[in-house]
């Protein structure tokens, strides 16, 4: 509970300072706002406690087991599934995908029916999840082979820029945002454990130099894949 309050506190502080000190207009729907805040704090608390009890201990021990086992195909398959599944469960992405669907419907990019919006939002999330799965697969392969991170990142940046030239302009904003949205509450702890565990179990690798970089890939590939999703849609 304390941790969730700390998450929300800076947001509330800034908003309140601006409301009271700068805007000085009455707030509409105060009841909804307060109720919503309570939902957020309680919900986030339950969510994090549940993750810490159920998924994180098991996930982390599993990540270490796979890293030590040394069977490459299984490791790669596991990395992909982990990336895909954690991203699907990421609450921030769920919320943003819904917003994106609403915006796309209001702008006439998709049909404004409920079904069309839901399928667009779900398509967006599946695309991002697939992208994160691919990112982890490539990232794990990189750690095993010892390829330098910055060369792959430069190649990734170049690809993002190239795809941008061909992507429909309506998708570019949400595509660029999706990279930062995906890496959040569930993904970051498990993925960091995967990278550091892997670098630990390979001889001659320094976990601090080689263990990082998975999150970086996971924030890069969604940009490309979402733009491609946009190209396919239109």
């Amino acid at each position: 509970m304390v941790a969730s309050c700390i998450d929300l506190a800076p947001v509330l502080a800034v908003v309140l300072i601006f409301q009271l000190g700068v805007i000085r207009q009455p707030l509409p729907n105060v009841l909804d706002l307060v109720g919503g805040m309570i939902c957020i704090v309680v919900g986030l608390t339950f969510f994090v406690i549940g993750l810490e009890q159920a998924l994180f201990p098991l996930g982390e021990s599993m990540v270490y087991a796979f890293a030590r086992k040394g069977s490459l195909p299984w490791l790669l398959l596991f990395a992909f599934c982990l990336g895909f599944a954690t991203t699907i469960a990421e609450p921030a992405l769920i919320a943003v995908a819904e917003q994106a669907a609403e915006v796309a419907a209001s702008g006439g990019m998709i049909d404004s029916s409920d079904a069309a919006r839901e399928s667009y939002a779900l398509g967006l999330r599946l695309t991002v999840a697939f992208a994160v799965g691919v990112a982890l697969l490539v990232g794990v392969f990189r750690i095993i082979k010892g390829w330098p991170l910055h060369l792959l990142m430069i190649a990734g940046y170049a690809m993002v820029m190239t795809i941008t030239l061909f992507a429909p302009p309506e998708i570019i904003g949400i595509a660029y945002d999706s990279g930062g949205v995906t890496t959040s509450t569930i993904t970051v702890p498990l993925v960091t454990a995967l990278g550091v565990g892997l670098a630990h179990s390979i001889k001659g690798r320094n976990p601090v130099v080689d263990g990082f970089g998975l999150i970086a890939f996971a924030s890069l590939t969604p940009m490309m894949f979402v733009m491609i999703y946009g190209m396919v849609l239109t």
Binding site: V34, F46, P91
Partner: peptide, 22 residues
């Protein structure tokens, strides 16, 4: 733990819609 995750997620998303987005 899984039950907590599910309840937490539903509440959190509900809260986002009621408070943070508006």
């Amino acid at each position: 733990g899984l039950l907590f995750v599910v309840i937490g997620m539903a509440l959190f998303l509900q809260g986002l819609e009621m408070a943070l987005f508006p």
